[in-house]
């Protein structure tokens, strides 16, 4: 048997857990346990709060089922389980569980994200703010939640009893990012989320203000926009800004 054929048969047997490809099955069972155990352990590491919410046994059952159908295609397990939140929902878990899992995964993603320093508002070389556009740090992600998953996640992280899951009357947006070395998330008021989403898509600050003017009285636009701008910088979201061709 060629080495290639041996390897393909061996991996095939690990994936389906079926017939050992070798006469002595004892050693093969060690590797089968290592393979599946390694994937499940990676999920347990990333989805710590999801496991607390589901309970150890139910999480283990879900994780094993996921591992059986989702081999790893990367040499690192850091990103393994990116589709686990969707899998949970398809497998009968509640939407709140899937959304808690999304927060777990997004925070893990931010943990390993690129080191890109943020800048302070005072370092933004902009004279005409209406023309300013922003470059956000690469770990920033926005996601809409339909349940109180953010509150549940925070309670679980604090080792407090998780509140009952409820469906929100209006979806909420969470922002996940990393500030310095610490991954974070925050639930945003819908207007703030829309403004940030606009700015992240490349809109000028002037365009953001115009949109804001459709939501609040004209007299309040400047104050609200200023508050938003300070928050983006104070929270370490902005890595650069530019206006009229200038950039830093």
């Amino acid at each position: 048997m060629t080495l290639a054929l041996l390897q393909r048969r061996f991996v095939g047997s690990l994936l389906d857990g079926g017939e050992p490809p070798v006469a002595d099955a004892r050693g093969w069972r060690v590797h089968l346990g290592n393979y599946r155990g390694g994937l499940v352990e990676a999920l347990r590491d990333t989805f710590e709060r999801t496991e607390r919410l589901l309970g150890h046994e139910r999480f283990a059952a879900m994780a094993h089922a996921y591992a059986e159908g989702h081999p790893s295609h990367a040499w690192s397990l850091n990103g393994y389980g990116a589709t686990f939140p969707d899998f949970l929902q398809r497998s009968g878990a509640t939407l709140a569980v899937a959304e808690v899992a999304w927060i777990d995964e997004a925070l893990r993603d931010a943990f390993y994200g690129p080191d890109v320093p943020s800048i302070a508002l005072r370092d933004c070389p902009v004279d005409d703010w209406s023309e300013a556009t922003f470059r956000f740090v690469p770990t920033v992600r926005l996601h809409r939640l339909h349940t109180n998953a953010a509150t549940i996640w925070a309670a679980l992280a604090a080792s407090s009893p998780a509140p009952d899951a409820v469906t929100l009357t209006e979806p909420a947006t969470v922002r996940v990012w990393r500030r310095h070395l610490a991954p974070r998330f925050a639930t945003l008021p819908s207007r703030d989320a829309a403004c940030l989403s606009l700015a992240m898509s490349g809109a000028t600050f002037g365009e953001v203000c115009v949109w804001l003017g459709t939501q609040v009285p004209a007299a309040d636009v400047a104050a609200e926009a200023g508050t938003l701008l300070r928050e983006w910088f104070d929270e370490g979201l902005v890595q650069g800004c530019s206006a009229a061709g200038a950039s830093r």
């Binding site: 991996v11 790893s72 990367a74």
Partner: peptide, 9 residues
């Protein structure tokens, strides 16, 4: 691993 599948073993 082989054929793009990693066993992490």
């Amino acid at each position: 691993g082989v054929d793009g599948i990693h066993t992490h073993d």
